[in-house]
């Protein structure tokens, strides 16, 4: 999956340099743009495998850039933002961003997010069994095993877990999860989500208070991590 091409759109030269060095030393091909106009031009002429987009660009609002990109660009877009405004992040995710990072970010975190986004873009999962280290989720037989023992899940718990597992590594917003599991009428009923997250953690996590699989993204949603 390496040698994937990445386009960085960020107006800060220091951040561009940092990303170029970090990504190139991890065998990615990097091009970068300092504003929305140039970014859109490069994205159109040399479509990359992934775009890292800063929300605060000088010439155009990042949310609008994202919307325009999403009209034709189907590969992963990762958002960078300075302020950890949850509303901003949720809005970007709703507009089709695959993931987000808040500056300052750790390099390890950045690479993990990029790899996860690229992975989910590549594999069109034929294998019905999703392997998550100590946890196996078989989408064909709808069974979940933890350390080779079958975990009994209710229908709702299973639905929630299968949504998580199929979008491993990606942050899923509260609204998205509520809509997918309970339906559009429930997007404000976050208490349901809290109940089932707690129940699911009790069943699949080794220590439910230190979850290794279902990670809380404060004020935004949850992220499912496959490996411990």
């Amino acid at each position: 999956m390496n040698n994937a091409s990445i386009l960085v759109i960020d107006d800060e030269v220091q951040i561009r340099r940092l990303l170029e060095i970090t990504l190139e030393s991890n065998n990615f091909q990097v091009t970068s743009a300092a504003d929305a106009k140039e970014g859109m031009r490069i994205a159109a002429t040399h479509p990359p495998d992934l775009i890292i987009l800063d929300l605060g660009l000088p010439d155009e609002n990042g949310h609008i850039v994202l919307k325009k990109l999403r009209e034709w660009f189907t590969k992963p877009v990762l958002i960078l933002s300075v302020q950890s405004s949850e509303e901003d992040i949720v809005k970007a995710l709703d507009n089709g961003a695959n993931d987000y990072l808040v500056k300052p970010f750790r390099t390890g975190e950045l690479l993990a997010r990029i790899r996860s986004a690229l992975r989910s873009a590549v594999d069109e999962n034929d294998d019905p069994v999703i392997d998550c280290g100590d946890l196996q989720i078989d989408l064909a037989t709808r069974t979940v095993k933890k350390q080779n023992e079958i975990v009994k899940l209710t229908a709702t718990e299973y639905k929630l877990l299968s949504i998580f597992a199929q979008q491993e590594g990606k942050v899923l917003t509260h609204q998205y999860l509520l809509r997918e599991v309970w339906g559009p009428g429930y997007i404000n009923q976050s208490q349901y989500l809290r109940v089932f997250i707690a129940q699911l953690r009790k069943k699949i996590e080794t220590d439910p208070n230190r979850p290794a699989h279902i990670i809380t993204e404060s004020g935004v949603g949850y992220r499912f991590i496959a490996k411990d």
Partner: peptide, 12 residues
Amino acid sequence: KKDWCDINELIY
């Protein structure tokens, strides 16, 4: 931005 919080989740 008030929303339902699971205090257990919050603390841990």
